[in-house]
Design a protein around this nucleic acid. Structure first.
Lengths: 349, 349
DNA sequence: TTGAAAGCGCTAACAA
DNA sequence: TTGTTAGCGCTTTCAA
């Protein structure tokens, strides 16, 4: 910058004014400065600006991992929203490890990022409190530490699996299995309840033998569905609570001597890859993960603008996709009373 | 920092020495400073440090998108390697859009990131040249602009699909279809060649009706495989060149009245989610995307240490996973000469 | 073992 | 319309 000023025969501040297009600069002067910038290949130093302005135009995204459609569509949502406002995003994978999370929070506090989008773990309380103490704006997304008063954007897990089960029931399925995450997490609990209560409300007995929970791993989905299909009495419907499990389920179904959705209809609580509008399942409750993340980031930007406003809490709805062919091929609907089951529409109202 | 110094009754530089644990500080002084830091909740300002040290401990990752196992395992690899060295990663999704890429490169040059990991597009030449002109270290990963002399880490696409086809052939499959990306990209071309030449070497006629290329979208994989299965003469083997296509293929197979791998064996050029060690396919050429990205990042760090060293170019091998059950269930092997086909091992040597 | 002064590259505030 | 001064928060250099 000094070189540019010298080269153009002006002062530093004039160069600054040209670069930032503020203040008055004579056209001829501006031209000279611009020429100097060009010949010298000068690029303003953002670090120095940041030091001055006390802001970095950078957000940190703290999440367990991006290895999964669910998480990476969150990353994509945050990045898109940030990019649209000229902000950068620092990516921090914690693997749900409190130590790693702590290190990242430290680094962000030191780096003076402008805000943090965080998917907390159960142990994140102290870290979040530290952010608050330091006056670092943040928003919790998808998961929340209840004791912390902050902005929050989540999704309605309960309604997602509930809608899925309702659709299967409405199409006449009665032996509906459930494959989901271990219910040590709140979302795990919510999703299972959604399934359970749909059955109960429809007067279908909940069969513990049809409920399988474990890790969100494709292998678990595969082995579980394979075993379910190997049982003497096969399920005719299946609710899967997560994309990765659903991939495993698809594998088991492709291997087995059954056809989707005729022999078994799969309903999945599922995240579409960003940009895709396609799902392999009879019924899909699309986890609006991308929108959730975008909204969360918007929420954070609002807070940056108005730090004093009361904290917000929003829940994103699920989008339900029903495969057209599925609606036409009910299996066990009582021919006497074809309308015994409520239509999906009313179930979802 | 000023406050800390005042509070402890020392000068700024002494605080600095305590914080950075360099230089001599009397134990009692250090204790006083530490106490002051604690009571004041002082956190050093990394921005100011960066201004001084002319480095930011930050890498930028420029890639098309993270919405896909292939890309997000790249992101994960870069992040893990960076994290292990105390570096941060800025995430930049370009959507293969040159304008967006240009904006990001601008931002990075201004922000003085220490280096860039980039998956370039065909149009990235000018941007890369700009990086070079500004002396910004970078490494090209997966794709490369040949005209640019820089570090590069890629994978062997040709060998991947070739190994897949060879395995299917070795197990007696003869009607082997191919579903892959449009061959407008160099990797698209390479992958198709791998398949083609495996067939030719085995003396199997290449049937254009069995070769389908299009977008790397699950829907394309689904529709294509569905149509292949609906044809009068079904394929008994299938090479799929990408994870997203493979998901669609799985869907079509689960719907159809065929069983994997008995009726049709699927061989996929596939990226495992980071941490997973499971694949749904009879044969999988595991794209070592995570390793490629990690290695690329290591390469970049080497360059940061020694800017003058000659640029390196590395190709990552694929890991081949054969499903144990698949090896035992060949379909059309001539009973007279069961060993007519070479074993996979020799094919891969 | 400690500190004063200068400077990293830029901009806000004020002055001319 | 342009420039001078001071300072953002820290570290390096030199001195005590």
């Amino acid at each position: 910058m000094k070189d540019v000023a010298k080269h153009a025969g002006v002062s530093l501040i004039t160069v600054s004014r040209v670069v930032n297009a503020n203040g008055y600069v004579r056209v001829s002067t501006r031209a000279r400065v611009l020429a100097a910038i060009d010949t010298l290949g000068y690029i303003p130093n953002q670090v120095a600006r940041n030091l001055n302005s006390r802001q970095t135009n950078t957000l940190a995204l703290v999440l367990p991992t991006i290895s999964d459609p669910f998480w990476h569509s969150i990353a994509r949502g945050v990045e898109d929203e940030a990019e649209s406002r000229g902000y950068n995003v620092l990516l921090c994978n914690t693997d749900d490890d409190a130590t790693k999370e702590g290190r990242y929070i430290d680094a962000q506090l030191r780096s003076r990022v402008d805000g943090v989008v965080i998917i907390p773990t159960f142990e994140s309380g102290p870290q979040l409190r530290r952010l608050q103490r330091q006056g670092m704006p943040f928003v919790q997304v998808h998961r929340r530490v209840a004791a912390i008063d902050s902005d929050f954007v989540g999704m309605d897990s309960y309604s997602g699996t509930r809608a899925l089960a309702c659709h299967l029931i409405a199409q006449g399925r009665t032996r509906i299995a459930y494959v989901g995450g271990a219910n040590t997490s709140s979302t795990g609990v919510d999703r299972l309840s959604g399934y359970r209560e749909a059955l109960i409300d429809a007067g279908i007995a909940v069969d513990p033998a049809l409920i399988k929970t474990g890790l969100y791993r494709a292998r678990f989905g595969y082995e579980t569905v394979r075993d379910l299909l190997a049982a003497p009495l096969r399920p005719d419907g299946l609710v899967v609570s997560n994309s990765t499990l659903a991939l495993g389920a698809l594998h088991a179904l492709a291997e087995a001597d059954v056809r989707m959705p005729h022999d078994i209809a799969v309903a999945a609580y599922y995240t579409l890859d960003h940009g895709e509008d396609y799902s392999p399942f009879a019924v899909t409750a699309v986890q609006q993960t991308y929108d959730m993340a975008r909204l969360g980031t918007q929420c954070l930007f609002q807070r940056l603008e108005d730090p004093e406003s009361p904290s917000q809490s929003v829940t994103i709805p699920n989008r339900i996709m029903v495969h057209p062919l599925f609606v036409c091929c009910p299996v066990a609907v009582d021919p006497e009373t074809p309308d015994a089951f409520p239509s999906p529409v009313s179930l979802l109202a």
